[in-house]
Design a protein around this nucleic acid. Structure first.
Lengths: 338, 338
DNA sequence: TTGTAAGCGTTATCAA
DNA sequence: TTGATAACGCTTACAA
């Protein structure tokens, strides 16, 4: 009186009068099944409203055709755009995506990875929280294919695909220096994030090359919180403030910085030039279109995804970082220094 | 020579010298297992680096603890923010999220739903492409719990949680009318999206109440493409252009509209007031903070998710729409008409 | 071309 | 407190 479970190939087999094996082969378009029985099987399958149970299949085939994607915050357009590209890529290859937020939280990252392993995803795309692979021990032991996306570890213990962030930092700084800016504020996030670390390196390198001493009072550390960045920027300009340009870790925070600069009574780009990173979709459509470092997100995602599929196929994980060359996209937020 | 498959409870059982059943019960903290054997089992489980196979468990328990989420475009901040809220909600309840993009494409929606059913998700959260439930036949036949999020069907054939969009459209229009604007452009997306349809209804209702005739030349239909909106807005202002205010379907498109208005040589809000919908994160941090209708996304997501869990528990799907009251958030993009 | 039987890694049912 | 044994729904050798 209680069973209304979904139909199975067994039921189809019974109704058609063949074995389950035949049904399985018919439904999977395998050879060696007569057109007639095949027709019958398909007909009754539709009749019963049969849907194959991917769970049962996954159990025997040891493949779920599912990829785990772990990143800090999907609501951040940078990640959202990457997730979208990844979803499109994997969908076209017959994979689905399980998404996990870490909120830059180490324990949450660890827990997410464990859950994904339990669910037997075929592979994992991870934007790691830290710069060492501590949370990856589990993964490496379990030999789950993994590729890091957008950030890498200090030691090459896992394959990763990132933007060449040092180069990006360099390009941003060089651009401003060439425009005549000498006092350049760098608003960064925590250095335990490899991209933050590397971009800052590029900034320093460019300064050095232009013979400008690095002034540590021109470095602000903020969190990913938009309001935090807003407040800190405002405070900086109220107190010290003698800069003509700002580099911000990413576009979304740069938007916050723009507002702070405006609210402090300065004009962009006349008084202050601003450069961001990521080239998110809206950056070009802001009232003051943002000059930014374009990491070529799509290429990053596709390279990483391709690599992951290869790791899945070959059951062979080769560590090391692959970096994609970024480009400088000049818009209206930067201008010659007066 | 080829098997290095992950360890199973069978192996643990063999090593400890107990039955698989005992291992299963020990690992799941079930009663009736002596502390000593339990300790042994847990120890060897760790030794083997055992991770439970959620697929096998799902097969027998008929529950994957996975929710399917189908929406048009994760890279759109509005959806991204909702996905994030949903992920947080379901994570805390022990569920994961499989994400699917539809790109407002009917076939892709259908295909996504089928895949999710095959993968035996416990429930589906869907932002449907159309206003009829054509693509849901499959689901209803298969009795997969589903809740619509952000959009509803004309006929109440599925439970849904939306913002009260007609009210939202009304609030936006009323606000502008009260500021003395009489010529209000409405930039909308396709009316086969229920929220677009309903917001427009609210717009018309407010005009009626203020005794203003609806002028159909003040309605622009755009796609979700930022550039499309930009071009159409620019064209409007170059050609006809005699309006003092604009209502835009959503904030992300409103940003594009702002740029078009600025590029046409007008000033916001002095010449043109603008109202959006969604209250996405950056709206308050734009150089000109955007007046918008706040749909209370978080409450929407949590209500829908709660409803879905209930539907899963009770195996009982009651159709009908539940609408969350929106609020008007006034910022700097709207001002008294001169 | 088709069928039989084993197995995927769990949990659940019932005895012991 | 434990252990056989049978599911769960499918695929895959191998045999017929």
């Amino acid at each position: 009186m209680k069973k209304s479970n979904p139909p199975t190939i067994r039921e189809i087999a019974r109704l058609v009068g063949v074995s389950v094996n035949t049904v399985s082969r018919a439904l999977n378009n395998k050879p060696d099944v007569s057109p007639e029985t095949k027709k019958n099987i398909i007909k009754t399958a539709q009749l019963l409203n049969y849907t194959p149970n991917a769970i049962a299949r996954a159990l025997v085939q040891r493949s779920t055709r599912t990829i785990g994607m772990v990143m800090s915050d999907i609501s951040d357009p940078f990640f959202g755009e990457m997730v979208k590209d990844a979803e499109v890529f994997f969908r076209s290859r017959g994979y689905n995506l399980i998404l996990c937020n870490t909120q830059e939280n180490f324990d949450q990252e660890k827990h997410s990875i464990e859950t994904l392993i339990n669910k037997r995803v075929d592979g994992i795309l991870l934007t790691p929280v830290g710069r060492n692979g501590e949370n990856l021990q589990e993964i490496l032991k379990n030999r789950v294919p993994i590729v890091l996306l957008g950030r890498h570890f200090d030691e090459p213990i896992a394959p990763s695909v990132t933007s060449n962030d040092e180069r990006g930092g360099y390009l941003a700084t060089q651009h401003l220096l060439e425009l005549g800016h000498h006092k350049i504020l760098f608003i960064n996030v925590f250095h335990h994030i490899s991209s933050a670390h590397d971009r800052f390196l590029g900034y320093q390198k460019a300064l050095r090359e232009f013979g400008i001493d690095y002034d540590e009072s021109l470095l602000i550390h903020a969190s990913f919180d938009l309001d935090d960045v807003y407040q800190k920027t405002k405070k900086f300009f109220y107190q010290s403030g003698k800069v003509t340009a700002v580099i911000v870790f990413c576009d979304i925070l740069a938007i916050s910085v723009m507002k702070a600069v405006i609210d402090v009574g300065l004009t962009i780009p006349r008084d202050i030039s601003i450069v961001g990173f990521d080239n998110i979709n809206i950056s070009s459509l802001l009232p003051i279109p943002l000059t930014t470092i374009d990491p070529n997100k799509k290429k990053m995602v596709e390279t990483a995804s391709e690599l992951l599929l290869e790791a899945i196929r070959l059951d062979n994980i080769k560590a090391g970082n692959l970096s994609i060359e970024p480009t400088l996209t000049i818009r209206s937020s930067t201008i010659l220094s007066v």
